[in-house]
Design a protein around this nucleic acid. Structure first.
Lengths: 341, 341
DNA sequence: CTGAAAGCGCTTACAG
DNA sequence: CTGAAAGCGCTTACAG
């Protein structure tokens, strides 16, 4: 691999001039620039990022930090999408992406902290999980800028999150528009911020129609399919079951559908179902599940754009909210006997 | 952040001596070593990988190269698992992981090639896709070692792949052991190497029992759920339908299950079903799908271990094969009326 | 066992 | 507009 010195020799200029050309800096005559550019093109020279990083005091690498516990990591069906979005946008700005799936917080002081101290990252994107606080603490001690994907930035770092509130609002309006009045909700315990927002959006949608969420119709699972099935079973076995159920994620909605079918109910005629996330399973159910899609790719893109802006000297922005999309499929429809408001 | 010079000053030694301590080299007296180590511990000093990379001529970064086309990327349900395995093993050897989801081959000359030339990677792991060849070509021109996850290493690079053959053999033995004799297979066109191996394993299993795969019972989908449904419909509507179907991936198996249920068949009494991969959907079906699990995490681990071995000066190994596991669930059982061989 | 010196391949003031 | 020199923070021979 040629070095900048060889390029300089071939183009009969100094390394400093080659550097100016490489970095698109002024004060190079057009003819000189053309000559250098030609040599670069002929040799296929690409400057060493190792050397560049040392002298320019930047690494051209962004860290994607995903704290997780083994049972959690795969729970997020959008991680790959988020990664793709981040990488595409980072590449546009000349950055590479380093992956660090930091283990549980207790190990945070280990690999993760070491990575940050090793001076290898120009900035970082932290994916919010339940245990994000210790990692945020480590980042706060560093000079490099960082961005959170999720809610509750534990400090002054910008955050990017999906419009869970708006998605829930749209889903609720959709069901109300179909004529439903007895809406039940399958929530989750514990409930991360995103699910809080979804619940808030549902309440707001009901409020628009002059309704409130009957606390008896708010039940909780633990985000798993089985818990959704159990919660729905509870709701459906009551004297006055709901005509529609919104589950705060798709897996619980899939469980609810299973409970409904087991009781001989027809979806959506006897029971409408709406989920959140649009995981692969959603479109494979029969009937396919109406759900609120997570904008994974866009979340990643927006987070990377924000971080690159910070690195470029832009003032920190406030939290960005990425639109969600209501995907209407077969699991939601008008109730068999429309009720009166 | 302190530098090695400051540590040297604090420990009253030369930077060269600090370097020896940092790199666990001999020729440092125990007392000196202890003093330096104490200063390092007190200051929390971590050497700059930027500087270390430049002088030691290595970056401590491994590239994870995933060529993909937009519609392909998410098809592999094990990418996250593979990533986790690679990262865990790489970290054990002091390496970090850089993610490069290189776009379609036509863009390969762009970001991907630039990354390789920028001298940023000590080695690379290439995830096999249909279009892996152009990327392998780029890697071959580099001095850095690399490893393929998948089949058909296009050259002398070591490859690591799952034991698709063995998994298919186990699945076939399982069905034969239950008493099935009329086995059908839903394959795919085009058929990547992994699926070829699976088909080979099925034939081998049948051969053990003195059977051969009836070519009329070998049909093809395109790996999608819908194609599996159509293929199964074709098989089930015949005068003499099979008592068991092996689909070369879970999505097609899920489609086959849908086709069976639509025809009022009972799974597994009327039709046993086996898939491959153990995607999340597999355990969520009713009945849950018997399938051959992909050892994603282990694949990643093995690939990273091989690559780190190469970087440590070990001789190139031949291809490593990672065991697969047959997960028996509710979709497979004895046929209603056991046939005679 | 220890340290002074040179060098990794760039960029950054600075002088011309 | 151009280039000589110093420096980024380490490691690597080499001399002592």
């Amino acid at each position: 691999m040629p070095t900048i010195d060889e390029i300089a020799r071939l183009a009969r200029v100094s390394p400093a001039t080659v550097s100016k050309v490489l970095n698109n800096r002024p004060y190079v005559s057009p003819t000189t620039r053309a000559r250098v550019e030609q040599v670069i093109a002929e040799t296929g020279f690409v400057p060493s990022l190792r050397a560049r990083g040392l002298s320019a005091r930047r690494s051209f690498i962004l860290g994607l930090l995903i704290p997780y516990r083994a049972d959690q990591f795969f729970a997020d069906p959008h991680l790959l999408e988020i990664m793709r979005g981040i990488e595409a946008e980072a590449n546009r700005h000349g950055y590479h992406l380093l992956l660090s799936t930091a283990r549980a917080p207790r190990e945070a002081a280990g690999a993760f902290s070491h990575l940050l101290r090793s001076d290898m990252l120009d900035g970082a994107i932290l994916v919010e999980t339940l245990d994000v606080q210790p990692f945020a603490e480590l980042l706060r001690q560093r000079p490099a800028p960082w961005v959170v994907i999720g809610y509750a930035p534990p400090g002054p770092a910008p955050a990017v999150h999906a419009d869970d509130f708006g998605g829930a609002l749209a889903a609720t309006r959709h069901l109300l528009g179909l004529g439903h009045r007895r809406l039940a909700v399958i929530s989750s315990t514990p409930r991360p911020s995103a699910l809080d927002e979804r619940l808030r959006g549902i309440r707001a949608g009901l409020a628009e129609a002059g309704l409130t969420l009957d606390s008896a119709l708010l039940v909780s699972g633990d985000c798993s399919l089985a818990s959704g099935e159990a919660a729905a079973a509870d709701l459906l076995d009551r004297p006055a079951p709901p005509t529609a159920i919104v589950a705060l994620n798709d897996r619980m909605a899939a469980g609810a559908m299973r409970a409904a079918i087991a009781r001989g109910l027809e979806v959506p005629a006897d029971l409408s179902l709406v989920g959140f996330d649009d995981i692969a399973l959603a479109s494979l159910l029969s009937p396919a599940l109406t759900t609120v899609r997570q904008p994974g790719y866009c979340l990643g893109e927006a987070a990377a754009a924000t971080l690159c802006g910070l690195l470029g000297g832009q003032a920190p922005t406030t939290a960005a909210v990425i639109p969600t999309e209501l995907i209407v499929r077969g699991s939601s429809g008008p109730p068999r006997a429309p009720e009166r408001g």
